[in-house]
């Protein structure tokens, strides 16, 4: 099981939880299971999410592996200049 921390904007869409436990081995599996559990997350997951694994931020590579001792954060997808 992976502990996932949600950014504040997602929490109202996930029963107001800051942290949730998910059985997942990749980012793709993690996001799929989260939106299955909380359908309201589907819209922000479409274009607005990035995932930090142990501090490294992934915006697109949903094949990244996750293990149970990883620190996983969902962040807003960033804009750049």
């Amino acid at each position: 099981m992976v502990e996932v921390t949600l950014w504040a904007g997602l929490r109202p869409l996930a029963d107001h939880q800051e942290r949730v436990m998910v059985e997942a081995s990749t980012i793709r599996e993690l996001l799929r299971k989260l939106q299955d559990r909380y359908p309201g997350l589907k819209v922000p997951f479409k274009n607005d999410v990035a995932v930090a694994i142990n501090g490294t931020i992934y915006r697109d590579d949903w094949s990244q592996q996750i293990s149970s001792d990883d620190e996983v954060f969902l962040l807003r997808r960033l804009a750049g200049g």
């Binding site: 921390t5 950014w7 930090a52 142990n54 501090g55 490294t56 931020i57 620190e71 954060f73 962040l75």
Partner: peptide, 9 residues
Amino acid sequence: KSSYGPVYG
């Protein structure tokens, strides 16, 4: 622990 959440490498 960064101020925006994750722990730094």
